[in-house]
């Protein structure tokens, strides 16, 4: 696959979360859809401003949990009934009350692992390279005290000149054109 070239997007830097959220919701309402906010801490308002959408993590977690439940309950049943039946003080081989706890623990384990790995996969992680790190102010500020809005070039509405003037209207600290 050839490496993409050219402009990745325009990255606007803001000093306060309020400015970021205002600019982001303005961009969303004027039609930009390929855009992202970057903040040093979770910012619910920013997620809401750029159109937070549903994902499949909960479904994958449920399926993972059910698989774990079925796997362990099946394993216990198979061992106790067919593979290695043991007579424990005359109790029935199929002693389901005793099977519940390991089965429950595998449910939690599978559900937890499914949720974590599904979240990473849907986020596109692990990712070894991301273009926004080409901007020096992003490298220095994104995880400490700066708030960024990136309007990406793949958006049909994106135009280097127009988008830059759109962002300038929201008085950012700086606007950087980010290359791939």
């Amino acid at each position: 696959m050839p490496l993409p070239e050219g402009t990745y997007g325009l990255l606007a830097e803001f000093d306060t979360p309020t400015h970021l959220v205002q600019a982001a919701s303005a961009a969303y309402s004027s039609g930009y859809r390929r855009l992202d906010c970057y903040s040093p801490y979770p910012l619910e308002a920013a997620a809401a401003a750029i159109g937070f959408h549903r994902d499949e993590v909960s479904l994958v977690t449920l399926i993972g949990g059910l698989l774990g439940l079925a796997a362990m309950f099946g394993l216990e049943t198979w061992i106790s009934l067919w593979a290695y039946p043991l007579n424990i003080a005359g109790r029935p081989y199929f002693s389901w009350p005793a099977f519940v706890i390991p089965a429950y623990e595998w449910t939690i384990l599978y559900a937890g692992l499914s949720a974590a790995f599904c979240m990473l996969a849907l986020n596109g992680l692990p990712k070894l390279y991301h273009p926004v790190f080409n901007a020096p102010n992003f490298r220095n500020g994104a995880t400490t005290d700066k708030f960024f809005l990136c309007l990406e070039a793949t958006d049909p509405k994106f135009d280097v000149v127009e988008t830059r003037s759109f962002l300038e209207a929201h008085a950012p600290v700086s606007i950087v054109e980010v290359e791939y």
């Binding site: 619910e44 308002a45 997620a47 809401a48 937070f52 959408h53 549903r54 994902d55």
Partner: peptide, 8 residues
């Protein structure tokens, strides 16, 4: 009393 943000 603040506004809340709706999640999906």
């Amino acid at each position: 009393l603040e506004q809340e943000y709706v999640h999906a």
